[in-house]
């Protein structure tokens, strides 16, 4: 803020003053370095001389306003800072001081050209910045929003209503036992794999419609449980879940009994509603 108002008051005087300090500091760096005759020191000195010749104003001419000058100075300073320090303490101090005085030139553009300070310039810049931001936001919105919506579309268009699937002939399931059955998933779309999935059918008691159809997913994390007829238990392969024949959790992390599908018996066929359980169960 203060820099701005300074420049607005008398840009030319500011530029001249800056150029004077800069010239001094550059001499300081060179003097500070001159005591070591290392090749890299010589390179640094040479580059600073070039900077001096290129960028510093000749007598009576204002400093050229260019970002190249700043970049070049930055370059030179990085070179100097990367050098091993001079052996002599006096030269060390001088160098450090000169570098410290040079650093502000990197932050404040002391070479600011007069035409950048015309009245109305700041308003125009502000307006352009705003327009550019608006343009960017509009363009990215036009592209990004449809892309995003397409990406999350499965959550938007959801399946509704029951999805009845045939499990098998009801009288084919033995009484009092658990049997694996394979049902068609039938997504009704273009996909042609993973079209079947297994469920476990428990025909309990002796009633003709006394069925339980378990999802094969462990209620802990959906690993596929396996039924062991010998022990009449379901075993989960992942973290030690074990379920009894009636679905009760016996061991391991699961706290919830095995999930059961909604079922019905129609025309002698046992059917389940695929949509009666959430998609991961």
């Amino acid at each position: 803020m203060t820099d701005d108002s300074d420049r607005a008051v008398d840009p030319e005087a500011k530029a001249k003053r800056g150029a004077g300090v800069l010239a001094n500091a550059v001499e300081g760096v060179i003097a500070g370095l001159a005591h070591d005759a290392d090749a890299s020191v010589q390179t640094a000195v040479r580059r600073f001389r070039e900077f001096q010749a290129d960028m510093l104003p000749a007598e009576g001419r204002p400093a050229p306003g260019t970002a190249d000058g700043i970049a070049l100075l930055d370059d030179c300073l990085q070179d100097v800072e990367a050098l091993p320090r001079p052996a002599e303490p006096a030269a060390q101090l001088r160098l450090k001081d000169a570098v410290d005085r040079l650093r502000p030139f990197l932050k404040v553009n002391a070479f600011a050209a007069p035409e950048e300070m015309e009245p109305g310039h700041r308003t125009r810049r502000l307006l352009l910045k705003g327009l550019l931001g608006l343009l960017g936001a509009t363009l990215s919105g036009v592209v990004a929003i449809p892309t995003l919506v397409a990406a999350i579309s499965p959550a938007i268009r959801r399946r509704t209503g029951p999805q009845w699937r045939r499990v098998g002939r009801a009288d084919a399931f033995p009484h009092g036992d658990v049997t694996k059955a394979v049902i068609p998933v039938g997504r009704g779309d273009w996909s042609r794999s993973l079209e079947e999935k297994a469920v476990y059918v428990w025909r309990r008691g002796t009633g003709d419609e006394d069925f339980v159809v378990y999802s094969r997913n462990c209620t802990d994390l959906s690993c596929p449980v396996t039924y062991d007829r010998g022990s009449a238990c379901f075993y989960c392969p992942c973290h030690g879940g074990i379920f009894a024949q009636d679905g009760r959790p016996l061991a391991g992390p699961p706290r919830v009994p095995l999930y059961r599908y909604a079922i019905r018996v129609r025309g002698g066929n046992l059917e389940l509603d695929l949509a009666s359980l959430p998609s991961v169960t």
Binding site: A151, I152, P154, A155, R158, R159, V185, R187, D189, S191, R192, S193, L194, L274, A275, P278, S279, V280
Partner: peptide, 17 residues
């Protein structure tokens, strides 16, 4: 949770999508 699952699964059932 349910929306995330549908998105990650890209549909109501696990499949080629």
């Amino acid at each position: 949770g349910e929306s995330l699952t549908l998105i990650a699964q890209r549909g109501p059932e696990l499949g080629p999508q």
